[in-house]
Computed example of a mutant assay.
Amino acid sequence: MLIIGAMKSGTTKLIHDLDCIPEICLSARKETNFFIKAIKEDRLSQTNESSLLAKYQNGWPSLNPLKHQYALEVSTSYAKVPVQPMAAGLIRRVSESTSSSFKVIYIPRIPIDAVSPFYRHAFTSYLAWARNHRIAVLSHDILSRHLLAIYSYAKQLEKFSSWLSRESLLLINFSMFTQAPAEIAREVARFLGLDSCFEFEDSGVRHSSDARLESYRDIAEYTLPPDLANWKLSSSQRETIIHLLREDIKRLREVYEFDTSEWTEFN
């Protein structure tokens, strides 16, 4: 089972919350990015799909077939086409060649709300990226094409929905997840055909760039904008996002029947 994103939409918390479901086994690493690495390293030229699946399964050393029904990982890079390779195509090949099944969870979030966390993450994770983009993004009304790709939700989902059945794809409302994480965990259990009467334990986990922001400020003030923690979109940047993503969000609503009624700027 895969949680493919979207980035900065609570995927870290969700995977840890789902650890309370007895039949689910979490991967040893949260983001294995296994299929992205396999594409970049051209592993299928060296092995077949069955061998690739076997290597993939090594990411769950604690998996107990007598207890667990699902192996779960989060790799948001699987939904970052074209900035990242199209992992969905390779996952499909492995699934069809080995008769293995995959289920996908995706958490859309109002794009404008995700942008500030996106930039804090990007600037504090990749200093070279920060050096190249700090002036362009923060001083001018330029937006990263990486960002616009990530938050083109319908476009990213198409890579999976083109071959997965609708019963194998679950979209989670980000607002509901933040307000009622226990109900979302039970919704996932029902989606997987598991007993939803387990005792929920809120993991309390949050993925934040704040700690990195403070540590990097000491060593790279020349790179990080001094007000990054409080940075917000300009009116021009907001208008650009709304204009460029409105049609994609319309498709998210109409094709995937996802409720965007609270996304007032896009309706």
Rank of each mutant, 00 (worst) to 15 (best):
I4A: 00
K8F: 02
S9H: 04
G10V: 04
T11L: 04
I15M: 10
I15C: 07
C20E: 06
I21Q: 00
I21A: 01
I21E: 00
C25G: 06
L26A: 06
L26W: 06
A28M: 13
E31R: 05
E31S: 04
E31L: 07
F34I: 03
I36V: 13
A38S: 11
S45D: 14
L52W: 02
L52R: 03
A54I: 07
K55W: 14
Y56A: 07
G59N: 15
S62L: 13
P65G: 02
P65C: 05
L66M: 11
Q69F: 08
Y70L: 00
L72K: 02
L72E: 00
E73R: 00
K80F: 03
K80D: 11
G89T: 08
V94R: 01
V94N: 00
V94H: 02
S97C: 09
S100M: 04
K103S: 09
V104Y: 01
I112S: 08
A114K: 03
V115F: 09
F118L: 03
R120C: 06
R120A: 09
A122G: 09
T124D: 03
Y126N: 15
L127V: 04
A128Q: 14
A130F: 01
V137W: 02
H140W: 11
H140F: 15
H140C: 11
L148Q: 07
Y151G: 04
Y151V: 14
S152E: 06
S152L: 00
E158D: 13
S161T: 14
L164Q: 09
S165L: 11
E167H: 10
L170R: 05
S175K: 13
M176F: 15
F177E: 09
Q179F: 12
A180Y: 14
P181V: 05
A182S: 15
V188A: 01
A189L: 08
A189Y: 00
D195K: 08
S196W: 04
C197Y: 09
F198R: 03
E199C: 10
E199P: 05
E201T: 12
R206A: 10
S208E: 13
S208T: 11
A211G: 08
E214M: 12
S215G: 11
Y216G: 14
R217W: 08
I219L: 15
A220I: 06
E221P: 11
T223P: 05
P225N: 07
P226R: 09
L228I: 09
L233E: 05
S234H: 03
R238G: 05
H243L: 09
H243Q: 12
E247W: 03
K250P: 01
R251F: 01
E254R: 07
E257A: 15
S261C: 06
